[in-house]
Design a protein around this nucleic acid. Structure first.
Lengths: 216, 216
DNA sequence: CCGACTTTGTGCGTGTGTTCACAAGGGCTT
DNA sequence: AAGCCCTTGTGAACACACGCACAAAGTCGG
């Protein structure tokens, strides 16, 4: 389930505060979900709480981490070291959860060789070699839209089976390869949609198109 | 619907290629969804295609843009000009869709005054003034987790009703304020989860916790 | 002008996710 | 040791979204 990471983060906060046990009600509030949903999620992964008491924070952290595969070390490559790629390479939230930035790649000669977050940027021509040598199974694509599919094909051919795509295109990949897409512009558009709804919605302006196209 | 921006992007690509009309089947393939779903989405917003022909690309672009509120100009503020804030301020996908970066804010004296993407970074002490003077209704939060709720409260108090939150915390806001959360670490965790599933899943390691805690 | 073909719009069955509500179960107090 | 109270785990109703499949509708060729 996609909510497990949210629970996990809330649990980490509680653990830092020294909380030993937590009820489903409290944890659900911290995670921003319904308590029944949380209990069902946790029971679904077979983890047990104690009736009358709640869940032991440390135990639950371990169970969820294991379920998510965070008890192992994942080597991640970032392809495309523009502004976004740089931001991602320095993002602390990755390393603290078992993700190790293992390689940075770019096509721009002015960027290749640069030292960023302790890693030297390598040339994308060496992509296949870099991926195989470092045992990379997850790639982050922060490249321009026009290059995304080509880069995607190459990382898949090199053995990568999970891709986090920031380019605004729909990638096509073979079966067995997972793609998650983060589109920053889409998020803003969804906000604008709700914002407009608050302001009364688009009703009453149905004729705008004709006016814009044909003149009033 | 959250899929409209995806359709819109696909339509823009088609428009650039000079395509005049498109069938639901073609557009659905470009957007990566089922064609029946696409038709239902489009009919839901009252837009009409032509049976036997398809949808007129230009007309559909306008209809969806209007539905999403992209025909108006949205002023956006970015709070927190770290690596991520810089990447966002320079992201071209915003300006091309009716979003205008109107203000950049940060608390760090070394950053305030800096010129980034044509804007001077302002001090967060002036947040209320900046938001009101620029008519900002959407704020992007790229601040550290510890500061996020406080900043959120301030932008809401200043009249912002839509927030795009990159900080890894669950923000609490009054009714009428929309929050969308982008958590880069969560996306990777979800990928790791599927990656682990492919490799055989967490079965067989149930005893690891006891061993890790109590010794073998 | 007519018929065949294409594509939209939608009714319906199906499956999934969400929520309520409650019984089962365990701890804590007396 | 016994009963009370709290919390989990889950059964069942509900709501929603998805996709198939088809009828309505409009176009194009003859």
């Amino acid at each position: 389930m996609a909510r497990l990471p949210v629970y996990l983060r809330a649990l980490h906060v509680l653990a830092e505060r020294g909380v030993a046990t937590v009820s489903s009600e409290e944890l659900a509030a911290a995670a921003g979900v319904n308590s029944a949903k949380l209990r069902k999620d946790l029971s679904h992964l077979g983890s047990y709480g104690t009736r009358g008491v709640g869940y032991e924070v440390e135990y639950l952290v371990y169970q969820i981490s294991r379920e998510l595969g965070l008890t192992q070390d994942w080597a991640v490559a970032i392809v495309g070291i523009g502004n976004l790629g740089r931001a991602l390479s320095g993002y602390g939230g990755f390393a603290s959860r078992g993700f190790r930035m293992a390689a940075l790649l770019d096509a721009e000669p002015g960027i290749v060789g640069e030292l960023i977050s302790g890693l030297t940027v390598e040339h994308i021509d060496d992509l296949e070699m870099v991926i195989k040598d470092n045992g990379i199974s997850i790639a982050v694509l922060a490249v321009p839209a026009a290059a995304a599919q080509a880069v995607c094909d190459r990382v898949v051919a090199s053995g990568v089976t999970s891709i986090l795509n920031f380019a605004p295109v729909v990638l096509s990949v073979p079966d067995g390869v997972d793609v998650r897409k983060v589109d920053l512009s889409i998020e803003l558009q969804i906000l604008a949609f709700h914002e407009q709804r608050k302001a009364g919605g688009p009703s009453g302006v149905e004729q705008e198109y004709l006016e814009a196209v044909e003149g009033p």
